[in-house]
């Protein structure tokens, strides 16, 4: 069980680092948004891996509730950022 948790927490940390790198390096808005979403996925990944308690015991519900809220907030933030980006593009064209 510890090995599984370690594997998935390590995977989450790697996702976080990859997303951060891509967010800092690539200028276009859409790529920055994908990078932020991958970073968030890394954080969720770490939380779910911490909640895992083995293959035959129920997992810890509190991190699951946090992650569920986080998914909804991430989608809302993405939609807001896309709307702002569209407005900026339109004002540039004018």
């Amino acid at each position: 069980m510890i090995a599984t948790q370690l594997l998935y927490v390590g995977c989450g940390i790697l996702l976080l680092i990859l997303g951060l790198w891509s967010f800092l390096v690539h200028p276009p808005l859409l790529r920055k948004l994908i990078a932020i979403n991958v970073m968030g996925a890394g954080v969720f990944h770490i939380l779910v891996a911490i909640a895992y308690r083995g293959i035959d015991t129920p997992p810890d519900p509190v991190p699951h509730a946090l992650v569920l809220t986080g998914i909804v907030v991430a989608v809302s933030a993405t939609a807001l950022a896309l709307a702002f980006g569209q407005r900026l593009d339109r004002d540039d064209d004018r």
């Binding site: 895992y52 997992p59 989608v75």
Partner: peptide
């Protein structure tokens, strides 16, 4: 990782 609710939410909205 035994979190079917999160899998559902991620697939549908994420």
């Amino acid at each position: 990782l035994r979190a079917p609710d999160l899998a559902l939410a991620e697939a549908a909205i994420g």
